[in-house]
Amino acid sequence: MEKTELLSGTLDLLVLQVLSGGPLHGFAIAEQIHVLSRDVLTVEEGSLYPALYRMEEKGWIEAEWGQSEKGRRAKFYRLTKEGRQQLANERQAWDRVALAIGEVLRNA
């Protein structure tokens, strides 16, 4: 399976987007991104956890220990109000960039 590198700066957007569906633990976040991208995107653990800690530090997400599906203790991340705001901002920015890149590819 071919791995596609994540565009820099998009990991935050994806994590926030995935979390907007509800609280998830780290492994589930990586899985969700993988699955939702139809197996195209793989999130490296080496990038995921520092990103999670950073976003927690910034107050976009908060963590809580809870029970995972198989009854194991897991740390669940959830969007905060600021996180929701940040998600909206980043989506807007992404849409603008995607549109702009599309324009260039179409017209050049």
């Binding site: 490296e44 653990e45 520092p50």
Partner: peptide
């Protein structure tokens, strides 16, 4: 292997604590 160096990762996470 996918995880990479656990200790390094921990250190990088700690970095985020500021």
């Amino acid at each position: 292997q996918a995880f990479g160096g656990v200790e390094q990762l921990k250190e990088r996470c700690r970095d985020q604590w500021g």
